[in-house]
Design a protein around this nucleic acid. Structure first.
Lengths: 155, 155
DNA sequence: TGGACCGCCATGGTATCTCATGGGAAATTA
DNA sequence: TAATTTCCCATGAGATACCATGGCGGTCCA
């Protein structure tokens, strides 16, 4: 069964760059036999992407095994596989965030884990709020357009 | 077996933020093998949306599994999956409402569960009454407009 | 038909345990 | 050897699992 990453959890980042992975996320990962997470800088926003190491391996398998890789595959190889880092849990279920990832996500003393189903992200809480507000505006604008046209495309 | 959420039930919210899920709703959920509910802030009104966790997982499955998600999928992931919270039943069939959800829905000491078929909502009883009054006015106005134009778009 | 009994359900309270977090010792590297 | 990193233990607050109670409604029996 695929137990998805659901919910948002804000945890503290200590002086050593450690942060507790939310228990529900950890449970989901450990159920798959994983003892840590895979992290890489997000391609879409100022945050860190996280998932199980198995997902990275699945990504590798999905790439065509050709002597001359496609441009897309090459990009994925560089931007995800190449920049990903494996971070194991400590006894208390924490991971150590790499220094350069912390910098790219503008993290300071708190990190917000956002479940996105198959993956999760780690955000600076304030930046997360801003990003979600913007997405909310976008969704509401779409809804308003529906009302004025009389059409209803809701699922 | 009753599978849809039907009816309105007002229950008490105690000091710990606990509230009893109406027995008919619980029965419906437990019949599907669920041991709790999934909650998330409504995108459209000042209330909490509720459904079975299976519905959220289905949403995750419906999203395209790509290294680089579409903006729409990203919005869904942030505003629903990321904002959702899994809340298990206690022995008495209650759930604990997250503090921030209580705030967003302006809940104080009572919560009104409103069945909406596949999902349900939790409202502050006064706000629910106002919202339903407004909807009633809207329906009546539409009906009146139909009479004057002679058109009938009723389904 | 009236009354007593029984069971379900909402609600209040308490004990237990999990989880997030801090600190330090051991190991590793430069 | 000094600086970092990794591993492990300690702890307290907060969450959750469990137990208890009372009220309402329905049912069964006299």
């Amino acid at each position: 069964m695929l137990k998805a990453f659901i919910g948002t959890f804000v945890n503290k980042i200590d002086a050593k760059g450690r942060i507790s992975v939310p228990a529900p996320f950890r449970t989901s990962l450990q159920a798959r036999g994983l003892t840590g997470v895979a992290l890489f800088p997000s391609l879409t926003g100022a945050c860190i992407e996280g998932c199980g190491l198995d997902r990275i391996e699945a990504l590798v398998e999905s790439m065509h095994d050709a002597p001359l890789p496609s441009v897309d595959d090459d990009a994925i190889a560089h931007l995800i596989v190449g920049s990903a880092r494996e971070t194991p849990f400590d006894a208390g279920g924490r991971i150590v965030l790499p220094e350069d990832f912390i910098a790219k996500a503008n993290l300071t003393d708190k990190g917000a884990f956002v479940g996105k189903g198959r993956t999760f992200q780690i955000w600076e809480p304030g930046a997360l709020a801003k990003t979600q507000d913007a997405l909310m505006q976008r969704v509401l604008a779409g809804r308003k357009a529906q009302m004025s046209t009389g059409k209803d495309e809701a699922r």
